[in-house]
Amino acid sequence: EPREEEAEKYIKRANGDYDKAQELAKKDGNEEIAEAIKEYKKR
């Protein structure tokens, strides 16, 4: 799923820090991806 791939990219950029990844996504205006990262975190 493209959303998950995007989320993974942010998580990698944030060195595995989900909260930081979420912030990066929000900064880029990717609210949807920020949500996907939140879902990811719950797994």
Rank of each mutant, 00 (worst) to 15 (best):
K42R: 12
G16L: 03
A21Q: 00
P2F: 15
K26W: 11
Y18H: 04
D28E: 12
A14C: 03
E4L: 14
A14R: 00
A21W: 00
E4K: 09
K20F: 11
R13H: 08
K26D: 05
L24P: 00
A25K: 01
A14Q: 02
A25N: 01
I37N: 01
K12W: 10
A21V: 01
E31N: 12
D19E: 10
Y40F: 10
Q22Y: 15
K20C: 04
E1T: 13
N15K: 08
I11F: 04
D19W: 05
A34E: 05
E5C: 06
A34T: 05
P2T: 15
A34L: 11
Y18C: 05
A14W: 00
K42T: 12
G29K: 05
A36H: 07
E23G: 05
K27E: 14
N15V: 03
D28A: 05
K20V: 14
L24I: 06
E1G: 14
E32F: 08
E8Q: 11
E6P: 05
K27H: 10
G29Y: 04
G29I: 01
E23T: 07
I33E: 03
A7Y: 08
Y10E: 02
Y18I: 05
E1H: 14
E5H: 07
R43D: 10
A7D: 02
G29Q: 05
E39S: 06
Y40N: 04
A36Y: 15
L24Y: 08
A25Y: 00
A34I: 14
A36W: 15
K26Y: 13
K27M: 13
Y18F: 13
E32Q: 12
A21F: 00
K9P: 04
A34K: 03
D17C: 02
I37F: 01
K27F: 12
E6T: 11
E6M: 12
K20I: 13
E4S: 11
A25W: 00
N30C: 04
K12V: 09
Y18R: 03
K41R: 08
E23P: 00
G29E: 04
K27R: 13
D17E: 03
E1F: 15
Y18S: 03
D19C: 04
A7V: 15
A36N: 05
E35D: 10
E39T: 07
E5Q: 12
K41E: 08
A34R: 04
E6S: 10
N30L: 13
I11M: 06
I37L: 05
A34Y: 07
A7H: 04
K26E: 12
E8A: 10
R3S: 13
E39M: 08
I11D: 02
K9A: 15
I11A: 00
E4N: 15
E8N: 07
Y18G: 01
E1W: 14
N15H: 11
E39P: 00
E1P: 13
G16T: 01
D28T: 02
E1S: 14
A36D: 05
K9C: 09
A34V: 15
R13A: 14
R13D: 11
I37K: 01
Y18M: 07
A7S: 05
I37C: 00
E6G: 07
K12E: 12
R43T: 11
R3K: 12
Y40G: 04
R13T: 08
I37H: 00
N15Y: 08
E32D: 14
L24Q: 09
A36S: 07
K9I: 11
E32G: 09
Q22A: 10
K26H: 10
E5T: 10
I33D: 02
E6L: 13
E4H: 10
E23R: 06
G29L: 05
G16W: 10
A25M: 00
E23C: 04
Q22V: 15
A7P: 04
A7N: 02
